[in-house]
Design a binder for these strands. Structure first.
Lengths: 184, 184
DNA sequence: TATAGCATGTAATTAGTTACATGATTAA
DNA sequence: TTAATCATGTAACTAATTACATGCTATA
């Protein structure tokens, strides 16, 4: 039960390959429209990690040049599937990191004028509202995938993202009202 | 109006020094009980950055060995205060990053059994509940600082953290109920 | 025929953590 | 006297982004 042999990027890759055979490029595209919001990955991570995973026997790559276009698609091996399952059910503490420059600014905002304070709050809200729109836009697609392929958790985590934005937007509105009230 | 000359760590330091003269050690301690949740900083960032800021003329350091203990406390210069204000009111896009391993696992959890899925959800909820407790514990202190020193935004951002935990906990409960319902 | 997208990859850079070395003071 | 805390600092490491190089195919 070797607990934590691989980087988180490795598990992102294994997880994506559990959905089917994919190239590095396809994995990156998938990440960008799905997990990016709570876990990002760049080419500079994905391609070298695919190599390492192949050496470790967790994935199997196959050149598939078909046309003239160079293309190497990977699929999970039995060991890869086991490693994914082990990680998914592991009891290790979960990595959780947050960097929110808007809130950081707010923390130091006692030195600002009330109108400047309000302006920053509105900017934070606007960014969360924009993100909410973007997530809402991909929801129908995720709902289809849920119904067609039984990918229930794709939809569930998308819903998580929307709930997060909603909470932030509500909090901003409350804080804006409080500031306005304190000023009178 | 030189927009973005400094690292975010630089602004964390400037912001902390706006509250009063501090050593690197004190800045780090403050970060650990306040902004760490939405913006962390380590000694490896703080000490070199203090040097750079002094060279750039944004802070002024003073050796203050008093007893035998070596100690160098820094305070803001007028330029430092301006740089802080510029950043606080800047229109630059705000950095926002999130890495949440629990949600990442959920995203791939269609391959798990229902009881394993539920177990992961409960672990995520437990971590958010624990964090909520920790934030609640420091709230009285922040409330005092608010009333004594007029640090309203310290309390406001703490409230933000609690609202975030609340939203996550609520979402987990909802998801747990949904999973349970789908199983019958 | 030009642009967008598919596809692979790496070099350079920046950021950030961890762990250690050092040494003083204060409280148990 | 021992442990905790104050205090400064860096070296080594790991992680991650960015930007570029290359070259193909399909579409407007």
């Amino acid at each position: 039960m070797a607990a934590q042999d691989h980087s988180k990027t490795a598990y992102v890759i294994l997880g994506m390959l559990a959905l089917g055979k994919r190239t590095g490029y396809e994995i990156k595209s998938l990440v960008d429209v799905s997990t990016r919001f709570f876990w990002a990955a760049s080419y500079g991570q994905i391609y070298p990690e695919l190599r390492r995973l192949e050496e470790a026997g967790l994935v199997r790559g196959e050149d598939d040049a078909g046309d003239g276009r160079r293309r190497r698609a990977y699929e999970l091996t039995a060991e890869g599937r086991t490693a994914l399952h082990d990680w998914l059910t592991s009891e290790q503490p979960l990595v959780r990191e947050l960097r929110h420059e808007g809130v950081l600014k707010l923390f130091f905002s006692d030195v600002l004028d009330p109108d400047e304070q309000l302006a920053q709050l509105r900017r934070i809200r606007a960014e969360h509202e924009e993100m909410r729109e973007r997530l809402k836009a991909v929801e129908p697609g995720a709902r289809e995938a849920d119904e067609a392929k039984g990918l229930r958790f794709t939809l569930l985590t998308l819903d998580w993202g929307i709930a997060y934005q909603d909470a932030m937007i509500d909090w901003c509105k409350r804080a804006e009202r409080e500031l306005a009230a304190a000023e009178v």
